[in-house]
Design a protein around this nucleic acid. Structure first.
Lengths: 246, 246
DNA sequence: CACGATAGCGTAGGTGATACGCATAAAAGC
DNA sequence: GCTTTTATGCGTATCACCTACGCTATCGTG
């Protein structure tokens, strides 16, 4: 059997035989939990090894016995912060994927910093895999090949993660300067978009799409999310149609 | 007229009246260019203020006369690194958006670090807006409302950016350990995916979707990209159908 | 030619990651 | 119970970076 690298086994909490030696007063899971708490409360920037250690009442360097580097800690956080996936209503794949998407966005939104961490590599942690599985399960009754299911779910994750990032950034900008935010953006566009050079964009700007509170509005963000999601789901439906008719 | 914040005007290179005083030997554009060169050659991590300054033969702190912070420099880079958008073949929106998507991915791929920088906020730089405009122009002959066009193009950008990030990460992992990369992933999945807990994922793993070089393969990445893109485009087509038939 | 505004940049402070090695605690073996 | 073994806790020290501040050099203007 192939030897698995420690950064992967760590995610699953496999501990070979810690028989001898001093009893650890800390586990990687503890550290991850504390780091997530700090990030939730004060943002990702506040997560330093020293800060996390202080949270646990330990010295900074103690953490390095359990975590190879800060990057590894971040990787642990991206798995640890996810809720377990919901049970999907069986039957219609579309309803299933919609439920799934809404649930994953809800899970993301509990941890605003999630959009900022760089995911490195394919899903491998327990929670990530559980979500992956649940997404695939929504497509169970379709005639798709396994590889196609993977492509669809991966694509959806990609899209949702991007959407999260975008909404997070807008929320950020809005929080920093609520009143000016959309005004400034609209003003900047009006100032720089030359109808001769960017006619399509100019038309949009003129139509007032970016005006005032149109840009940032909780309601609208939800609507945008649904719009894009449905586009993607429509695409899946079309693909299924095309596939079964040939 | 609303006063625009300097970080925005800087992107457009508006300089009010730098009449008096010493002549600048450096411009924000120079700095951006140098930073991009460093990132291209040695990765984003190599971009430090000191390194960029050295590249220009200046002292570190000289940069701060032209750029408020490193974050601002990164923002400038994300605009400066983009090629100008291509001229799209008129007529069919689908061909237009496909051309556009492929071109933007090609532009991204010249700068692998692009996937790593955190975009902060809606597109506002000249190149970003040019791309935005060009994307919108592909939808010009459709009966969509302006807001819908924006939603569609934004969604597409979101998806493409995510796709870029994913492929970058895979390429990264592959580069670090070409032989082991997919083997380790497949092995890890086989080890941890319990068919009782994650039946759908187990089925996929058993089907060999993640085996050996299936996971990372230039050919496959391109195919995945096209698959996802077409899903999204199918979704747009379906939306157009639904819309015109009611 | 003196003045004032602006660019260049040296110094220094602060933050943060992390290598290294020793002290310490706990199990294993006698 | 005492020694040996082994892993943990963590103090010290280093290194890399960002950036505030203020001085000096330079150039247009009157």
């Amino acid at each position: 059997m192939t030897e698995l690298p420690p950064e992967i086994t760590l995610l699953w909490g496999v501990r070979e035989t810690p028989r001898r030696g001093r009893k650890p007063s800390l586990t990687a899971a503890d550290i991850t939990r504390a780091a997530i708490a700090v990030a939730d409360a004060e943002g990702l920037a506040a997560v330093s090894m020293a800060r996390v250690a202080a949270e646990l009442g330990n010295a900074t360097m103690a953490l390095y016995r359990h975590v190879k580097s800060k990057d590894e800690l971040l990787a642990l956080m991206t798995d640890g912060a996810l809720d377990p996936p919901p049970v999907l209503p069986g039957g219609d794949w579309r309803i299933g994927l919609t439920t799934w998407s809404e649930a994953i966005m809800a899970s993301f939104q509990k941890h605003p910093w999630y959009a900022q961490v760089t995911i490195s590599g394919p899903p491998i942690g327990p929670n990530n895999l559980a979500w992956f599985d649940r997404g695939l399960s929504a497509l169970e009754d379709t005639p798709l090949e396994e590889g196609e299911k993977v492509g669809i779910v991966m694509g959806l994750i990609t899209y949702l993660h991007g959407e999260l990032r975008l909404s997070f950034e807008l929320a950020e900008g809005y929080r920093e300067n609520p009143e000016a935010f959309s005004r400034v953006y609209a003003a900047a566009l009006r100032r720089f978009v030359d109808p001769r050079e960017m006619p399509a964009l100019a038309k949009v700007v003129d139509a007032g799409v970016f005006d005032y509170d149109t840009l940032y509005d909780e309601q609208d963000l939800g609507a945008d999310f649904n719009f894009g999601l449905n586009l993607y789901l429509d695409g899946i439906a079309a693909y299924l149609d095309r596939r079964s008719s040939t």
